[in-house]
């Protein structure tokens, strides 16, 4: 009985992974080698033709660049703000536990709710932000109408939604730093800023490495915020690889191109992660 227990559990896991992750992924990759003008059409083998077509298109490079800008800025802001809030929430003040709980709330909100609420708030005629700005005599901001503004908007929504993840993780990490290290630093003459750079940051480096990696991967693959907020517009200003892949496959019914973009996106991310591990090794050599 027990002889088969371990292989049994393992087998279920392996089977589920193969069936639900590896299988579909391989299938998606295989689709990129076919021309398939609709979901019901018979696929025609075209080799790397779809890749050549995608790599030659300006839309792909635009989407790749947009993805880097979106993910890059969103991560930097999330990490900087997240650490800042974590440090604030680590101070002693009345109502700290309440605020710590509240700080996590945005993370629990479904993306669609956050995006729709944001869109209502900045709505051109009814939005509270628009009305207030008008009352104060400020010029209107075209949140989703100009290219720069729409990129800023999707980044803002993303930062608002996922900074709590960084805050909470970092705050948890802060509890593990021995208090005596700060006391030693005080005796050594380090003020709050030097304490942060000489005690806090080095102690939490492993946590920070993981946070940035996770958030980076998630942001690069994030589909829903952009799709719901701008649909990639205006004029492709916020279109990144996930949106482009979706548009090619399910709006233009070029399944092969969509699959090729997704596969390329996967390789880009893989290379980025490999470089990241090189620069910031997970295990510090002792």
């Amino acid at each position: 009985m027990t002889r088969w227990l371990l292989p049994g559990f393992l087998g279920v896991g392996v089977l589920a992974t193969l069936l639900l992750i590896v299988g579909p992924a391989l299938y998606a990759v295989s689709l990129s080698f076919y021309d398939m003008p609709s979901l019901t059409a018979d696929p025609v083998w075209v080799g790397f033709a779809k890749y050549a077509q995608v790599l030659a298109s300006a839309a792909f490079w635009n989407a790749l660049w947009n993805g880097i800008v979106y993910a890059g800025l969103a991560i930097v802001l999330q990490v900087v703000l997240g650490i800042g809030f974590a440090l604030l929430l680590n101070q002693n003040f009345i109502g700290r536990s309440l605020l710590r709980g509240l700080a996590f709330l945005p993370y629990l909100l479904p993306t669609v709710v956050a995006v729709l609420v944001f869109k209502w708030m900045v709505d051109g005629s009814l939005g509270i932000v628009t009305i207030l700005m008008d009352d104060w005599g400020l010029p209107p901001i075209y949140w989703f109408e100009t290219e720069t503004a729409s990129m800023v908007s999707v980044i803002m929504i993303s930062v608002w939604l996922w900074t709590p993840f960084v805050t909470t993780t970092f705050l948890a990490g802060l509890q593990t730093v021995p208090g005596q290290l700060y006391e030693a630093a005080r005796v050594d003459g380090a003020g709050p800023i030097r304490q942060f750079f000489h005690v806090t940051l080095p102690s939490l480096r492993p946590i920070l490495t993981v946070i940035i990696l996770l958030r980076g991967v998630w942001m690069f693959n994030k589909f829903d915020v952009v799709w719901l907020a701008t649909g990639g517009g205006p004029l492709g200003a916020t279109e990144h690889l996930p949106v482009l892949s979706y548009r090619e496959a399910f709006a233009l019914y070029d399944i092969g191109s969509g699959a090729a973009i997704a596969t390329l996106s996967f390789f880009v991310l893989m290379v980025a992660v490999a470089i990241y591990f090189r620069v910031f090794p997970m295990e510090q050599g002792k």
């Binding site: 005596q180 030693a184 000489h198 080095p202 102690s203 510090q284």
Partner: peptide, 14 residues
């Protein structure tokens, strides 16, 4: 003053 702590409190990354 200089202080020696019970758990040494050495900076682990230095």
């Amino acid at each position: 003053i200089a202080m020696v702590f019970q758990n040494y409190a050495l900076y682990p990354h230095k």
